[in-house]
Computed example of a mutant assay.
Amino acid sequence: MTQLSGAPGSDILRYTAFSADPEGGNPAGVVLDASGLDDEAMLAVAAELGYSESAFLTGKNGVEHTIRYFSPKAEVPFCGHATVATAIALAERDGPGDLVFSTRAGTVPVTVTREGDELRATLTSVEPQVTEISPDDLTEALAALDWPAADLDPAFPPRISYAGARHLVLGAATRERLADLAYDFARLEALMHRLDLTTVQLAWRESPDVFHVRDPFPVGGVVEDPATGAAAAAFGAYARALSLVPEAAVLTLHQGQDMGRPGTLTVELRAGDPRVRVSGTGARIG
Rank of each mutant, 00 (worst) to 15 (best):
A237Y: 04
V250L: 09
L242E: 13
E247M: 01
L242R: 14
L251W: 01
D225M: 11
Q255S: 03
F235E: 03
L253K: 09
M259D: 04
E224I: 06
Q257F: 04
Y238M: 01
P226H: 10
R240D: 07
L242W: 02
A232L: 02
A231S: 15
T228M: 09
A234H: 05
G229E: 09
M259R: 08
T228D: 03
G256P: 04
Q257R: 08
H254Q: 12
D258N: 13
A237V: 01
P226S: 15
D225V: 09
T252N: 02
G256K: 03
E224S: 13
V245E: 05
A248L: 06
H254C: 05
T228N: 07
L244C: 08
Y238H: 10
A233N: 11
L244N: 12
Q257H: 14
Y238A: 06
A248D: 06
D258W: 12
Q255E: 07
A230T: 13
A234D: 06
A241S: 14
V245M: 08
M259T: 06
L242C: 09
G236N: 07
P226V: 02
L251V: 04
G256Q: 09
E247N: 09
H254A: 13
M259N: 07
A233V: 09
D225K: 14
A237M: 07
A230G: 06
M259Q: 15
A232F: 05
T252W: 03
T228A: 10
A239G: 10
V245S: 08
A233G: 14
L242F: 05
A237E: 03
A234L: 10
A248Q: 14
V250Y: 03
T252A: 07
A249H: 04
T228E: 07
V250I: 13
Q257A: 12
A232T: 02
A231V: 02
L251D: 03
A234C: 11
A234Q: 08
Y238R: 05
Q255T: 02
A249Q: 03
G256D: 04
A230S: 15
A227T: 00
E224R: 10
Q257K: 00
R240W: 08
T252Y: 02
H254W: 08
A234N: 05
A241Y: 01
E247A: 15
P226I: 04
A237Q: 07
G236A: 11
E247L: 09
T228F: 08
A249D: 05
F235Y: 12
V250M: 11
Q255L: 01
A227W: 00
P246Q: 14
A249M: 09
T228L: 08
L251N: 02
A249T: 01
L242Y: 10
A241H: 10
G229T: 04
A241R: 10
H254E: 14
S243N: 15
F235R: 06
A232P: 00
A230Y: 00
A233L: 11
G229H: 05
A232K: 03
A230F: 00
D225T: 05
Q257P: 00
A232Q: 03
A234V: 04
A241K: 10
A248S: 15
L242D: 08
P246D: 12
A248I: 01
A239E: 09
A239S: 15
Y238G: 01
Y238L: 03
G256W: 06
G229M: 08
S243W: 06
